[in-house]
């Protein structure tokens, strides 16, 4: 009788869970295969065009109300001596690499969140603080986050940063694809300011078409690889380059979405609560049988 109650409880718990997660406002859940909008937006970064002026770094901080140096300070190219990464104080940084085709003009690479189509952070987050929006942006919700930093462990591009120095209300910081700006029809701040049009904002499908076109027309200039077209199931940000992407310190990643394996394991173990409930029933049966056996022996 009591066992039955427990099973009912588990069932109710499952239903209640669905109800609660359904109630909470979530634009898109993990692995959103069928809700990814066909005309979701992206940015094509042509690293052969970028001149490393770092205006995007300034514009980004400006757009997100972060403390920043005056814009003219950003022309300082000495920062390129060391590789930099986006962190809690800068959502985007530009790094510089040697150019095999022309040693006079180095290759500059802007780095920021890639806004994956199947984001590991969205799948991993314990409280669902990350969302993949129809526009393509992956954003973080401060009202949910508990600061566990699992998103940072999960991200294949090592992008989310955490305010380790804050004792109260530390935040996860990363590029939000200027979600608030694009919502009202503005361009992302970095795209808007780029003086050489190294960044192209548009629907991801168009961007891939443009990228293919550039490679086709200049096969000696570009390597035949659009980084982000297939990596970890596709990303909103796409890159063109004139050398192998590993030389520009892009991670080597497969084409499977980053959360794929863990999600299938997770959903396998919890398929409608059948495995846990069966195990419960099995152990209950075992308990009953061994008890009877013991009693009959006595």
């Amino acid at each position: 009788m009591a066992k039955q109650n427990r099973r009912d409880f588990l069932k109710t718990a499952a239903v209640a869970g669905t109800a609660i997660s359904g109630l909470s406002i979530k634009p898109a859940k993990a692995a959103p295969k069928n809700i990814l909008s066909e005309d979701r937006m992206g940015v094509l970064v042509d690293t052969t065009v970028c001149i490393g002026c770092r205006n995007c770094e300034w514009a980004c901080k400006n757009a997100h109300n972060m403390p920043t140096q005056p814009q003219d300070k950003y022309s300082d190219r000495s920062v390129f001596k060391e590789m930099r990464r986006p962190d809690e104080n800068a959502f985007t940084v530009v790094n510089e690499y040697p150019n095999p085709q022309n040693s006079e003009i180095p290759t500059d690479v802007k780095v920021q969140c890639m806004h994956c189509d199947h984001p590991a952070c969205v799948s991993a987050c314990i409280v669902g603080a990350f969302s993949k929006h129809e526009s393509g942006a992956v954003t973080w919700d401060t009202t949910r986050c508990i600061g566990c930093r699992y998103c940072m462990v999960a991200c294949p591009f090592q992008v989310p940063a955490f305010q380790f120095d804050k004792a109260l209300n530390p935040q996860i910081k990363k590029c939000d694809f200027c979600y608030e700006r694009t919502k009202v029809g503005k361009l992302p701040a970095c795209v808007e300011i780029c003086p050489v049009e190294a960044l192209t904002y548009g629907s991801r499908i168009d961007l891939i078409r443009i990228a293919r076109d550039r490679i086709r027309r200049n096969p000696e200039k570009y390597v035949n690889h659009i980084f982000g077209e297939f990596e970890v199931g596709g990303t909103s940000w796409l890159y063109l380059a004139n050398q192998d992407f590993s030389k520009l310190q892009f991670p080597k990643l497969g084409e499977k979405p980053a959360p794929g394996v863990s999600e299938s394991i997770q959903h396998g173990i919890f398929a409608y609560f059948v495995p846990p409930v069966s195990l419960y029933a099995l152990l209950g049966g075992l308990m009953w049988i061994t008890k009877r056996k013991n009693e009959s022996e006595e």
Binding site: G17, A30, S123, C125, A129, C145, R149, P170
Partner: peptide, 20 residues
Amino acid sequence: IGRWYYIWHPLIMWNGSSAL
């Protein structure tokens, strides 16, 4: 966890795809 005062969040904010 950075925001220890939100440790109860997982109780009401569910993400079934998260192993954590």
